[in-house]
Write a protein that binds this DNA or RNA. Sequence first.
DNA 1: TCAAATATGTTTTGACTCGATACTATTAAA
DNA 2: TTTAATAGTATCGAGTCAAAACATATTTGA
Lengths: 184, 184
Amino acid sequence: MNDELFNLIERLANLLRQETRLEGLSLGLQPIQQEALYYLSTCNRYSDTTLAVTEFLGLTKGTVSQSLKVLENKSLIIRQKDEKDKRITHLKVTNSGQAFLAKTCPPQKFSSAVKNLSTHEQDETKDLLYKLLNNYQEVTGRTAFGVCKNCKFNQNTPEGIRCGLTFETLSLDDVKLICKEYST
Amino acid sequence: MNDELFNLIERLANLLRQETRLEGLSLGLQPIQQEALYYLSTCNRYSDTTLAVTEFLGLTKGTVSQSLKVLENKSLIIRQKDEKDKRITHLKVTNSGQAFLAKTCPPQKFSSAVKNLSTHEQDETKDLLYKLLNNYQEVTGRTAFGVCKNCKFNQNTPEGIRCGLTFETLSLDDVKLICKEYST
DNA sequence: TCAAATATGTTTTGACTCGATACTATTAAA
DNA sequence: TTTAATAGTATCGAGTCAAAACATATTTGA
């Protein structure tokens, strides 16, 4: 059974990677670079660093550093030094980066395939994969990476939404993003 | 929605790849080489060629040829010339190849994660991913790769099970394997 | 019948990925 | 104030990958 699930996920991932390779051809972007760019477009301001990308992709920081350099050279991201901690550099997706992602991510044929499932099936698949991923992340002991508003540190106070870790106020857009400190 | 599904599959695949990398360390096997070996252990005698592996992994035949050379050098597979068509070479997994796969494929932590789902959830996930993969393969126009016994060419005659394409008799083990001619 | 087209597969080349290691700079801790 | 930890970059070598050229074997078709 886990055999079959393993096989299915591998094959879906192979197809995705293949389509991603084609979509990235126009800008000369490799699959892994597109994944990094996509992640940066979905994460919040606590999670837009080289190290966060490293944990998310499951690679080493040296490797990721190189991929990010490519994205910067192509003006798809820009670097912003952190105000308080000068070791940290924030990575922000530029407008042309957003434009590229809007066209290519998720790949068109994948979206078509998803649309051929019923709405109920789509929801069901999402829930189940989410459970599986959570289990897997727990077993491997990795950073969970979840959506801010579902996090146990997320506090809805009379003065607005707040993060219980940083004590900063969060906007309605903020809480939709992915955070590396996510915990349940 | 397809955004979320895309993201989930990518992340599961990243974790799998990472674990695969670790598991392959003992034999010096790269993730893609392990995937090829795993495929060869699950496919039938019509689908154990360089070209079939190429289609399955979605790479080019030159690339795959190199990965297979590594597997052969490590005595995890052997080559068998086809009797009828001398262009074709069949790739068979050796005993040590099978032993390696039994230990590492699917990765242990992934299996643990799957076991934390209920039996019903596991079945449900499998069915949904199977549907999604089928849709995706259809949209991309790729070879489907399905299990022999579910194929429209599979014929259950009084003289035994037969393939309607090759007209060869199939054993009970044969029909459990993956075939590149699979069609519904 | 026999040349042209097609199919299976290998080899080579160059761009890129990746982990490992060593390195710099900044911050935290003892 | 040393010492350790954190964030990140640079370099190296092994390996992936697509593309192209190549070698054989089979099929097609005039």
